[in-house]
Design a protein around this nucleic acid. Sequence first.
DNA 1: TTGTAGGCGTTATCAA
DNA 2: TTGATAACGCCTACAA
Lengths: 334, 334
Amino acid sequence: MKKKPTTIKEIARKLRLSPSTVSRALNDHPSIGLVTTMRVKKVAEELNYEPNQTAIFFKQRRTFTIGVILPSLSEPFFSSAISEIENVAADHNYTVLMGQSRDDAARELQIIQTFKKHRVDGILMSLGKNTEDLSFIELLKEAEIPIVFFDCVPKIDGVNKVFSDLSSGMREAIQSFASIGHKNIALINGPEGLLASQERMEAYKLALANEGLVYSDKYMVETDLTEQGNIQAIDRLLALPDRPSAIVSFNDFVTLDVIKHVRQKGLVQKKDIYFISYANYPLWKYMENPPMGSIEQYPDQQARRAADILFQNIEAKEQLAPESIVFKSKLILK
Amino acid sequence: MKKKPTTIKEIARKLRLSPSTVSRALNDHPSIGLVTTMRVKKVAEELNYEPNQTAIFFKQRRTFTIGVILPSLSEPFFSSAISEIENVAADHNYTVLMGQSRDDAARELQIIQTFKKHRVDGILMSLGKNTEDLSFIELLKEAEIPIVFFDCVPKIDGVNKVFSDLSSGMREAIQSFASIGHKNIALINGPEGLLASQERMEAYKLALANEGLVYSDKYMVETDLTEQGNIQAIDRLLALPDRPSAIVSFNDFVTLDVIKHVRQKGLVQKKDIYFISYANYPLWKYMENPPMGSIEQYPDQQARRAADILFQNIEAKEQLAPESIVFKSKLILK
DNA sequence: TTGTAGGCGTTATCAA
DNA sequence: TTGATAACGCCTACAA
């Protein structure tokens, strides 16, 4: 069904040269005479010759392709990451193969298999929320395909990872709240199962202690991150006899729902109640009444750094020691 | 540097069989005995055999890969498109190669070349803002690589395209404004050079006429889409003796800047001044005081449809007649 | 049921 | 300076 593109052989036949000569001429090999080189290139041009990369990939055992596996391509965090990854890859003359796991571990494995079959030169990955089985890391190691994790990274040692330290931002958030007199500071956390939730919880407790505030269970509520869950969570807090005056929440989306809800209840932000959350989505800038702050995690910088490490590994002759890079999260006051 | 993965030959040697037998056994060829097949598969498993796709691609002249070229991966419009494209591709057992043109025509061409060299089976593309030279379409046609454009599509005939009819949304917007008594309705348009701007302008004029309103040059201002440009544009309108009471703008980002600016000037939305713009970004839902409406262009549906058409073309034996699909844009009142 | 041989397009090695 | 040959890994028509 597909017409065969021009090959070196055809050029060779046309010029009564051997394919090897043509190949060398096209690659500007020094041993080939200038005249021949010119003749070859001219005919190649005429016939619209284009080297068959699939043949070259096959022969060279390199595809100049990296695979990227993300939970979602449509979330702002990941889309700014992927955008930056594509930039870095392009600088290295690499192409990017995309896979979306949708937080499905089975799908994640399938994508890894596909990438492996495609013989990608390396993989960048952010784990899905439910991924438990990390045995694919061993498989990739055996195949000598370097992998660098970022954002949601495995807890184990011995792998390349770039991730964000949530605690620095949390500390700054609690500090900010405390410095303007808040005592009852709550956390609306994500689902218990998530590593990201555990980290926030620990950071929250530490940060409270740091300010000499006591932790209380009642100020730690959970949401399943749906709109309904978010509203239930804030309602639970508002129902408390000594309701919190300041709230850190899992991410900006939670805060958006929550702000909307408390507004409907007649509470005024930065007067009756204060908010800070993770992500620092650009829209805050436009809000009439934004939350007090948001904690930036620098997805693009994380992604760039991860890509840099990946390319170092791809280009290295030797196996490199695994790197573990931590980006401090940072409170941005609005 | 890279350890060689197991090949069919090694399995064959180990079992004292011929490579062809092994190949057939692995592919469940009916002529091979059950026993042999089992033995082969067992050894393959033990040796972690994985077929070398690059060899297969090379031989089969199909890569089960599509290329996607977008101006940006980080814009919400495109990231929801790419997400949907990945879904469709995964359903077809295809992998997605990504390229970001950043509205640079040269880079666009380079990506196309790369994709062509990679022998992708098809291409989905949204043109950059400045793309003039469409000769690559001919090149792809010669190479018999199907291409489907979406969102920002070429004006020419004879190509597959899926795009949005901006005028339906504009008509609804002007209608809405007119129905609540607005007479002076302005348009903050994008740069003159953009097709998207031209379309909005025409739609705007038509829609005005449709409501029996007269078009006036002074109510049509342009922005370069920077924050500064957006503010200058609205200031020009506000400075008019009979300033407009309702404004349609190029997209939601423009409106965000403009809303913020007029708020600072003490104007109250939906009282002193009304807004509608294109894109329907989800954040409106959370705004305390959102614009009157936003015009949805359904990026995910466009993308899905474009991908469907691409796969039809890839799977077709014959060359299919080019399709041109128009999605009506639709005003969503807030 | 299994083996042999050839080829996909390119390039590297060796020979001329 | 150029050519012949082999090889990358897999598949398949043909032969046994």
